[in-house]
């Protein structure tokens, strides 16, 4: 898979992403999962419509040392930041280590044939006991 972003763009993305997604609270940072490289590139490969907005935002000039600095840039290009947000968030939450850290197995398959349990039917009994509500 060829890179959608240049080396310089990925470097800028890494700086921004580490401010948007710092580590802590048992969670990896964007840098810990190397978000600006493989994960972000994968997202842009799946949804290339985000690329132009992301590149435009990454090209904005300005010192970025705090989240407030990112916010100042976002005021200049809200659409570009929206695309960046989609890419950063999806790259982060599609990562297996991140999913494990939040206890998310993904949209896994389960058995639906179990249907309603005895507990469910007991909960429903008061509704049945109150009788019809139709007009």
């Amino acid at each position: 898979m060829s890179h959608a972003l240049t080396d310089a763009e990925r470097e800028r993305l890494a700086t921004l992403a580490d401010l948007m997604v710092p580590g802590g609270q048992g969670m990896p940072s964007a840098g810990d999962i190397d978000l600006a490289n493989g994960p972000a590139e994968e997202v842009l490969h799946i949804d290339p419509t985000r690329l132009a907005g992301v590149q435009r935002f990454l090209a904005l000039e300005g010192m970025v040392e705090t989240l407030a600095d990112v916010e100042a840039l976002a005021q200049k290009d809200a659409d570009g930041f929206a695309d960046l947000g989609v890419v950063v968030a999806n790259a982060y939450f599609m990562d297996a280590a991140v999913r494990q850290a939040i206890g998310y197995p993904g949209q896994e398959a389960r058995d639906a044939s179990i249907g309603l349990t005895d507990e469910d039917r007991a909960l429903l009994q008061p509704v049945i006991d109150r009788g019809a509500i139709h007009r």
């Binding site: 710092p22 407030a68 916010e71 976002a74 809200a78």
Partner: peptide
């Protein structure tokens, strides 16, 4: 993270 509130509410810690 789509601009409805301050970024500090949506991102960072």
């Amino acid at each position: 993270g789509y601009g409805d509130g301050p970024l500090t509410d949506a991102w960072g810690a």
